[in-house]
């Protein structure tokens, strides 16, 4: 039981409450994050309804292959994350660590793909400003939003990767046992980053395909 005692932190009376509290706190934070992205999606929706043609033209220049690969990577990482959490709850430390490892690897693969995609975009001068290759000018709004949306998402994912690596170190050195409340919060956050991508994907990569 010393393991459990180490997992318990102030001011919680017991571990069950602590887990519940952490997951609740995380959900409150996610509600906040949802509104953060909502402002972005709202801008996108309004501009798209005003410049449907420009958004179609601009959307046709996104790299659907990178986007699709990334979707698969992230969805799969959500799977391994779920298994990691389940394993942690069942106190299977090794399985937890392996699953977290795969999750991190998938996350990093996502970021590398993203980097390649950004590279291609910059090669094609798809950065709003003078010399922007597309017309009409409202295509620049799409691309401005593209950079901001994917950029912010990538920052969120990078944060997730860093946190998961930190958690792996903590678990690996047995500083905190896996069945504590930590996994709970990490998993919820990871899934959230995935859910944002589920909406970014059709809005960005599928906008100008038909």
């Amino acid at each position: 039981m010393t393991d459990l005692a180490r997992a318990l932190q102030e001011p919680w009376p017991d571990l069950r409450m602590q887990r519940e509290g952490v997951s609740l706190g995380m959900w409150f934070f996610l509600a906040s994050e949802v509104l953060f992205f909502a402002a972005l999606f709202c801008s996108y929706a309004i501009y798209r309804s005003y410049n449907p043609e420009a958004f179609r033209i601009a959307g046709a220049h996104t790299k659907v292959i990178y986007g699709s690969i990334n979707t698969v990577l992230l969805l799969t990482s959500s799977l391994t994350m779920t298994v990691a959490l389940r394993a942690a709850t069942a106190q299977l430390r090794r399985v937890t660590l392996i699953c977290l490892g795969i999750t991190v690897a998938l996350g990093l693969a996502f970021l590398i793909t993203k980097g390649l995609e950004y590279h291609d975009d910059i090669e094609e001068h798809l950065v709003p400003g003078t010399g922007f290759p597309l017309s009409p000018p409202a295509t620049q709004i799409f691309w401005g939003l593209y950079w901001i949306m994917t950029g912010i998402h990538a920052i969120h994912l990078s944060a997730g990767v860093v946190v998961v690596i930190a958690v792996m170190i903590i678990f690996g050195r047995r500083i905190i046992p896996v069945q504590g409340s930590t996994m709970e919060g990490v998993a919820i956050y990871w899934h959230f980053v995935d859910s944002v991508w589920i909406f970014l994907y059709p809005l960005i990569y599928l906008a100008g395909r038909a």
């Binding site: 005003y50 410049n51 043609e53 420009a54 017309s135 009409p136 000018p137 409202a138």
Partner: peptide, 17 residues
């Protein structure tokens, strides 16, 4: 000023900006 924003049906997009 933004000829592409409201293209009229049945006309080619020739209007300069």
């Amino acid at each position: 000023l933004l000829p592409d924003k409201n293209r009229v049906a049945g006309f080619p997009p020739l209007m300069p900006n």
